[in-house]
Design a protein around this nucleic acid. Structure first.
Lengths: 210, 210
DNA sequence: TGTAAATCACCCATTGCGGGGTAAAAGAAC
DNA sequence: GTTCTTTTACCCCGCAATGGGTGATTTACA
């Protein structure tokens, strides 16, 4: 083994007080060491590949390139590094964009220091640390709407339509007649008050019917 | 206020030792009380509405009706109850089906007792408790594949196709010519080695290109 | 014994889809 | 400053899919 066993942590955060606070906290915790701290993504992109952290704490609201925008570039520079988002923002859009771009966890800034250290350990251990409220939002995004107006079969067919399959193919795969599929689709359109595939899919997704 | 402030917890679990173990643990923790314990979903569906728990610990592998199958019915009986899945299984399919059916959290059975109690508190507090490995899988499900063969525009157009929109409508919304959209689609099909909308969408979703 | 769900039928006109080839213009990278 | 990629646009062709109208039968559940 070429290097010691400490977990190497880097921080990108524009507020110096916060940045140095975290660095002090983590640097003084046994088993952890600071690999680098940067006030901006521009700075980080220049030096971070050399500093080679195991875990990166990333703020999303930064001057210049935002943390979210920099995520793909950082992931490319550091494919093995676990990136933890650390922010005050809890908008769905930001969360899902961050997770879609490779973030391994999402913490809000009111997280107590010991939980941040625990989250770093957790992500190294194959976990996906999230603040409570974030986790709830993530879980909610999976939840279907139980009061759908669509029947079982209608829901099933609309799901198939949403995969891009033609009515003919859907009929074959469900072992029913093409005319039956057409009937179901007409009923779906009436119930959702739409007149096209695209509008039906949108209405159903917006309402979590599919 | 009609009832005391203790958090009312119910448990559905077929193994008596485990069930009584959890009940003992939770019942003896200040602030918590056991509202009911049931060895099967059939039993629970009969009595649980009367017991009216705040949180329900639900096993997925049960004799008779499985926990997952019973989820929609339980949710209907107890719309306000937070349901926590407690299981040894970590298959993606089970996890996403449970969350889609209204589970508010997902714990594995190797979770230490004090963490189970913490999870009950967390879910009452608006959180979404998950075991570390589960959380990682949930987060991974959002992650895009960064090594896509598709260009930015191609990805954008394939996403639009996946919403069910016609080529004409896509062209209008992106302010480009219909012929341009057709060109992009041809390129997408070549790159993904497919010959239809449905196959392109499937290939792209399977590989997390969209 | 009704009511809802799922099934199948035949009508119509319009639009969309997949595949062939070609190529100019704008950006990014070296 | 030239090369490579990306994005844009145009022509051809024929088959398949879509949206909508109306009506009828069977199955299942309460």
């Amino acid at each position: 083994m070429k290097r010691d066993l400490d977990i190497r942590v880097a921080i990108i955060e524009d507020d110096e007080t916060i940045r140095e606070g975290y660095a002090f906290l983590i640097g003084n915790t046994p088993g952890y060491k600071i690999a680098g701290t940067y006030p901006s993504c521009e700075e980080a992109l220049k030096k971070i590949a050399h500093d080679d952290p195991d875990v990166l704490l990333l703020d999303v609201e930064l001057p210049g390139i935002s943390g979210i925008e920099a995520l793909p570039k950082l992931k490319k520079l550091l494919p093995e590094t676990h990136i933890l988002i650390l922010t005050v923002y809890e908008q769905e859009m930001l969360i899902f964009r961050a997770l879609g771009n490779g973030a391994a966890g999402y913490l809000t800034k009111n997280t107590p220091p010991e939980k941040i250290v625990a989250a770093i350990h957790e992500v190294m251990d194959g976990g996906g640390p999230m603040s409570a409220h974030i986790a709830r939002m993530v879980i909610s995004s999976f939840k279907r709407n139980e009061s759908t107006p669509l029947t079982r079969r209608e829901t099933e067919i609309l799901e198939q339509i949403a995969t891009g399959k033609s009515r003919k193919r859907i009929a074959e795969e469900l072992y029913i007649d093409l005319e039956t599929v057409k009937s179901h689709i007409k009923n779906i359109y009436h119930k959702l008050n739409v007149h096209s595939k695209a509008d039906a899919i949108k209405a159903a997704k917006d309402n979590k019917f599919i």
